[in-house]
Nucleic acid binder design. Structure first.
Lengths: 356, 356
DNA sequence: GATAACTTCTGAAAATTTTCAAGATTTATT
DNA sequence: AATAAATCTTGAAAATTTTCAGAAGTTATC
């Protein structure tokens, strides 16, 4: 009787007997190595829970996947999220599998190709969905019963928000704060530049628009459908300048776009911040690397990674947790790229229509 | 007889019988789940090979670890290596576990703490050792019989080069090429700045020194023991300028150091490339992000990752491959940060001893 | 709406992994 | 050098996973 405590008193065969199924089927359910009819699956899980079968501390995999969807490269932003997620996982004795993948948001979910390593919970226990995702991938992961937490800001198209855990960062509020900051410095001709085809640029333009409207100023948005963020910033800025529009401040949709703006301003002989003030969003190392250093809306990327990891690990350890949504605040980091506009300052309009 | 081909005709129990050992012991050797005395280990491996036991296509893990040793953050350089390695692994149906770790190069190898996930080949089959490593870690990995490939450039201290596969990139040659390029543009007062306590900065200073000596010019090296690369570049450049030394060109040990130099030059009112030309090393996105874009020694980071992955996967699939060393070439990418010095140009010496 | 062709699911048996306790070896201490 | 304490190895048995071939379910076709 007092044999010595086994790692768990309840064995897989006890569950099988109680559920009236074979050992094999129970094993398959418990480690997701193969498909089991939904009702039997449920029967196994229920029986296991009832008998108090130790669903976690068994010696199965302790790896989660960090999905980097639809990105060609690993940007500093996502690097930082990855590092944050890894640190939290490591602290909980989990490892992180780095898994870039590409898929079309239009593909029916059954046709989204899921990497082999995700097909068996023996290997990967859950997924952090970073990069740009859409509902079809979430469906495919749900079908495989993989707990998932997504980076909310970057999901394109409609998705069933109540069914998934997600972590957002408040870039809308950040854009709003940045715009208000410009206003507090006396700026009125404040432009937003971005590619509003992309969710994140669109979200930020909303924040900008709100702040402008609240201040009774007309929103000035230059929305170009260009994929490369630096080209986008460059061309958007260039087009505003060559049209001779009044401009004393630019809110760029992200730091890379801001860099393009820097370049266009330099081309036109305009100084930052003397002639034009600039703010970016994301506050990656790029922001502090620019000369002059860029004022930017900081996203606490390490916290972002940590939060996603945390929600995921909770889902993994307890099968019954409800999906949760968390929104992390952002914060404007003030650097030398902005200056206060004095009442006496003339509005600078360079007329040169320099050809690109 | 014609039963239908099994995934392998030889079973683990055949090996056990032939080797005169228990099933358990053979299992332990074959998946590295626990330590087995070296002679028995060898006996098992030999017997398995002799019987033609399928060492690979069994359904064991297909994951390798990407070790990022002793780095606080994931720099763009290592990001790119990681992405390159992952792509090649994915093409071979392997996944990559992202595994940052910290250890002291002075610790005896038995005391180097190896993450749990590396302790069992059931999880991780091999290691790509990136970041900064030293022999003690390699010993610890060897002890666990984990195939390892290291990033050769970043190994500190002595190590047994003939026992490990390694991939180098020719940064020495790159520094040499960069220096020669300066010379071909007519520069003579060419400085190298770096922190030669760090292996990579030291290697590059060697390349620089060679090129200077071959051209009959005195090497001008500003070697400061500062960890933060940007501060290093800033302070090194500042110190040269404030001493009033002649300087028309700077070879910075890496791109971040070059950025520091940019900032110091801007502080002194010097233009790039009009007054001073600058070259960096690594050619990360930082180089093209600077204004003006930085001429830099490109390291083909994706190839670097790919090569490391390739050597590793070969070692994993065949237990008998010899360690190999590969050196990848580098290439100077010319951007706007350099200009030819005309014979008539006066040598600019700014005398202002601006306090930092 | 029946039948064929195909796919998915399942349990029994086979194969492998893991636990446990005993035996072997190493290390520390006298 | 001898002994005790601690650690490491191992085989047998227990537990789990995987294979295999047949059963059950689906879909396409006539």
């Amino acid at each position: 009787m007092t044999k010595k405590t086994r790692r768990s008193n309840v064995r897989i065969q006890d569950v099988a007997r109680a559920a009236g199924l074979s050992l094999a089927t129970v094993s398959r359910v418990l480690n997701g190595s193969a498909r089991v009819r939904p009702n039997l699956h449920e029967r196994v899980v229920k029986t296991a829970l009832k008998l108090g079968f130790d669903l976690n501390r068994r010696n199965d995999s302790r790896i989660v996947a960090f999905l980097l969807s639809n990105r060609a490269v690993l940007h500093p932003f996502h690097s930082a999220v990855l590092v944050g997620a890894e640190a939290h996982c490591a602290a909980n004795d989990f490892g992180v599998l780095f898994l870039p993948m590409q898929y079309s948001p239009k593909l029916p979910w059954k046709e989204v190709h899921i990497p082999r390593l995700l097909q068996n919970r023996k290997v990967v226990r859950g997924v952090i969905a970073a990069g740009t995702n859409s509902q079809n991938l979430l469906d495919a992961l749900t079908d495989r019963r993989l707990p998932t937490v997504c980076l909310g800001n970057n999901i394109v198209g409609d998705w069933r928000k109540d069914q998934y855990s997600a972590v957002f960062f408040d870039d809308i509020g950040g854009a709003q704060e940045a715009t208000s900051y410009f206003q507090s410095l006396g700026h009125r001709d404040i432009w937003y530049i971005g590619n509003c085809q992309r969710t994140w640029f669109a979200r930020r333009s909303d924040g900008y628009r709100q702040a402008m409207e609240e201040a009774g100023l007309p929103p000035l948005i230059r929305d170009l459908n260009i994929d490369n963020a630096e080209d986008l910033g460059y061309l958007a800025t260039k087009s505003i300048l060559s049209e001779g529009r009044a401009i004393t401040a630019i809110l760029a949709g992200d730091d890379t776009t801001a860099r393009g703006a820097y370049r266009a301003l330099a081309d036109h002989g305009l100084r930052i911040p003397a002639d034009v003030s600039v703010i970016g969003v994301n506050d990656t190392i790029e922001a502090s690397a620019l000369i002059p250093p860029l004022t930017s809306v900081r996203v606490f990327t390490d916290q972002l990674g940590k939060q996603m990891a945390d929600l995921l690990l909770k889902q993994i350890s307890r099968l019954d947790v409800k999906p949760q949504v968390v929104t992390l605040p952002t914060r404007l980091i003030r650097r030398e790229s902005c200056r206060a506009l004095l009442q006496s300052d003339p509005i600078v309009i360079k007329e040169e229509a320099q050809a690109s």
